[in-house]
Simulated assay, not measured.
Amino acid sequence: MAQKIIGMLGGMSWKSSAEYYRLVNEGVRDRLGGLHSAQCLMWSFDFDDIAVLQREDRWNDAADLMVEAAQRLERGGADFLIICTNTMHKAYDRLRAAVDLPLLHIADPTAERIKADGHKRVGLLGTAFTMEQDFYKGRLADLHGLDVIVPDATDRATVHRIIYDELVQGKVEAASRDAYRAVIGRLVAAGAEAIILGCTEIMLLVGPEDSPVPLYDTTGLHAAAAVELALG
C-alpha cells in the first residue's frame, strides 16, 4: 500500500529521536507485516544549538532554525511533519505558518487517549519550559478540556535537571528514578488521575511500575499517531 512520508524534526535529543525511529518502523511493520517499514525523512539537530537558545530565552531564534529544517523536509518530499520533542512545540504556530504540510501536534494524541480512558485531572512532567509556560498546558486545557497540574518549584527544578543533565546524555540513574517516583507521588496526592510524560526522554527513566496511576508516554502516542496518518 502507498504510505505517506513522515517528516521528522529530531535530534532534540537524538536519544528520543532514536526511539521515534524505532517506534514508527515497528508500527508500520506491525500493521503491514513482512518486510515493511516506515517511509520517513528526519532532520536531526545538533541539540546543543537548540539548548543554548532555550537557556538564553531566544525562542524566536530557535523557531527560525525549526522553520528552516521544516522547509528542508518539505522540499525533500515529506507529506506531513512531526516535531520529535515536546518543548519545541513552542514553535508549532510558526511552523504551521511556514510550511504547506500538516503538522501533528504531540499533545493531541496524548489528550485524546487520556479522555478516552476517562481521566480529567492530569499531572504534567517535562522540561521547566513545558511545565511552566502556556504553549503546552494551554493546549491541553483549552482545546481538550483537561485540568493540568504541575509539580511545585522544587520538584520542577529536579525534573528539569534530570532531563538535561542525565537523560538527553543517555544516563539513566536509579536515584533519579526514585526522585521521579516521589514527584509522581506528590502529583497523585494533589489529585492527578494520570501523569503525562511530557518530555520525550522521560520514558527512558520511568514506566508503569513507577506510578500508582496511568502514565501517558507522549513519545509512543505521537509515534503511533504518525503511523496511523502515514497509513491512512
Rank of each mutant, 00 (worst) to 15 (best):
V172G: 01
H36A: 14
L167M: 03
H160S: 08
Q133M: 10
Y20M: 14
I82V: 15
V159W: 06
E166W: 01
D61I: 09
G232D: 14
A157K: 11
K120Y: 07
M8T: 15
R186A: 04
H222K: 13
M131R: 03
N60Q: 15
P109Q: 03
A226E: 04
A179S: 14
P214E: 11
V67S: 03
R177N: 09
A190T: 05
A224T: 07
G232M: 07
V150D: 02
R139D: 05
K4Y: 02
I50R: 09
I114P: 14
W59S: 05
I196P: 03
L146T: 06
P109C: 02
M1H: 07
N25V: 08
Y21W: 15
L101S: 04
E112I: 00
P151Y: 01
A182I: 00
L9T: 11
E209R: 07
R94W: 08
G198R: 00
G145N: 07
G170V: 00
V168M: 00
E68Q: 12
R22F: 08
L146K: 04
D142K: 14
E74H: 11
K115Q: 15
D93V: 08
P102W: 00
D210K: 06
V24Y: 03
A63F: 13
A78S: 14
K90N: 07
L204E: 01
L9W: 11
E68W: 06
R96H: 02
G7C: 11
R58G: 05
I50S: 08
T219D: 09
D178W: 04
P214R: 10
D134K: 08
L229R: 14
A224M: 09
I106Y: 00
M66K: 04
D79R: 09
L65G: 15
L197S: 03
L95S: 01
E132W: 00
I184M: 02
V213L: 09
V183I: 07
D117H: 06
G118S: 05
Y164F: 15
W43C: 11
A157F: 06
A2I: 12
T130H: 09
V183P: 05
Q133R: 11
K15M: 13
A224D: 11
Q54A: 13
P214S: 12
H160K: 05
A175P: 07
A91Y: 02
A128T: 03
L167G: 00
M88N: 04
L53E: 02
L41A: 11
D165K: 01
G185M: 05
D178L: 12
L205M: 04
D147A: 13
L231M: 12
I106E: 01
L65P: 06
A78T: 06
N25K: 13
T85Q: 09
T127Y: 11
E201T: 00
S13Q: 05
A224P: 00
L32N: 10
L204Y: 01
R121M: 13
G7W: 10
C40W: 14
W14L: 07
A223Y: 12
L229V: 13
I184Q: 04
N86R: 11
E228I: 09
G198Q: 05
F47M: 15
V24Q: 06
A190C: 08
Y20V: 15
L215P: 00
R22A: 12
H144L: 04
F135N: 06
T130K: 05
F135Y: 13
